[in-house]
Lab assay of single mutants.
Amino acid sequence: MTEYKLVVVGAGGVGKSALTIQLIQNHFVDEYDPTIEDSYRKQVVIDGETCLLDILDTAGQEEYSAMRDQYMRTGEGFLCVFAINNTKSFEDIHHYREQIKRVKDSEDVPMVLVGNKCDLPSRTVDTKQAQDLARSYGIPFIETSAKTRQGVDDAFYTLVREIRKHKEKMSKDGKKKKKKSKTKCVIM
């Protein structure tokens, strides 16, 4: 069974824990209790493949930012979460993405942009803004509501699919490099 290491990042209060708990335990946590770091595991079937999701729910508070490099190193894919009623959390996505790329030393890291709290009427981040940002990053965008469960499975499952595509691409690139290195030079 394939294991996928997913990391949920975003500013404090955007609903990272609520999304994760909704996926794992099928219930909505409405009281806000700032996370330092929590880890969850769940076995699911995605596109006919049974897999184990190892999900790291991270601290959004700035005082825990020193811990970010460590979990970013171990993560295979990242859910970059903002709240649709919090423009600052949307603007912060850029910083999370840049930090992930720096730590992973790669421009090509599996990510999904997630606009959470889409059940709320007080939207300050337009869907088109988020779609445009995701398009500019070359990553999928999904709106979710941890409260109603809308888009929750889709967000995590899409990230797994992005990781699969990335692994497939990397193995193809690896095979191309191996083929090239088999060419021999004969000096007579």
Rank of each mutant, 00 (worst) to 15 (best):
A59L: 05
Q43C: 08
V8G: 01
L53E: 04
D30N: 08
I21T: 13
E37Y: 03
V29E: 06
D38E: 07
K16H: 15
D38H: 02
V9N: 03
D47H: 05
C51R: 05
D30V: 07
D47Y: 03
Y4K: 14
E37I: 05
D57L: 01
V44I: 10
H27Y: 09
E63M: 03
G60T: 15
T58Q: 05
G10P: 01
G15P: 00
C51P: 08
Q43D: 07
I21V: 10
G60I: 14
V9R: 03
H27W: 14
Q61D: 08
T2H: 13
V9F: 13
Y64E: 13
G13H: 09
G12K: 05
T2F: 08
L52D: 06
L23K: 14
Q61A: 05
V29A: 12
Q25S: 09
V44H: 09
G12H: 08
V45F: 06
V7D: 00
V14W: 07
V44F: 07
Q61I: 09
Q61C: 06
R41K: 04
V9L: 15
S17E: 00
K42Y: 05
V45T: 13
D33P: 15
L52S: 08
T35N: 14
N26T: 09
D54T: 07
E31Q: 12
Q25N: 06
D33Y: 10
Q43E: 12
C51W: 10
P34W: 14
C51M: 11
Q43F: 06
H27N: 13
A59Q: 06
D30Q: 08
E3S: 10
H27V: 11
L6P: 04
T35P: 06
K5A: 02
G13T: 07
T50R: 11
V14N: 14
D30L: 09
Q22W: 11
A59V: 13
V44K: 07
G13D: 11
I46Q: 09
A11G: 07
L19E: 14
A11I: 11
K42L: 06
I55Y: 14
Y40S: 04
G10I: 00
I46F: 07
H27E: 11
P34H: 14
Y4S: 11
Q22L: 02
D30T: 10
A59M: 09
L19P: 00
E63N: 08
K42W: 03
Q43R: 13
R41I: 02
I21F: 15
Q25M: 15
T20Q: 06
G10Y: 00
V7E: 04
H27R: 13
Y32I: 08
K42D: 05
P34V: 15
E62D: 13
K16C: 15
G15T: 00
K5D: 03
R41A: 02
V45M: 12
A18S: 14
D47W: 02
K5T: 05
V44D: 10
I55P: 02
T2D: 13
D57Y: 00
K16T: 15
T58V: 13
A59H: 05
T2Y: 06
I24C: 10
V14D: 14
G60R: 15
G12F: 03
V44N: 08
Y4P: 09
D38G: 02
D47C: 04
G13L: 09
L23P: 03
Q22M: 04
D38L: 00
G15Q: 00
I55Q: 11
T2G: 11
E37W: 04
Y40L: 09
V9W: 11
C51Y: 14
A11D: 12
F28M: 09
E62A: 11
E49R: 09
N26M: 07
L53Y: 10
I36E: 00
E62G: 13
Y64Q: 13
T2L: 07
H27D: 11
G60V: 15
T50D: 09
Y4R: 15
A18K: 02
N26F: 03
Q61N: 06
L53H: 09
E31P: 09
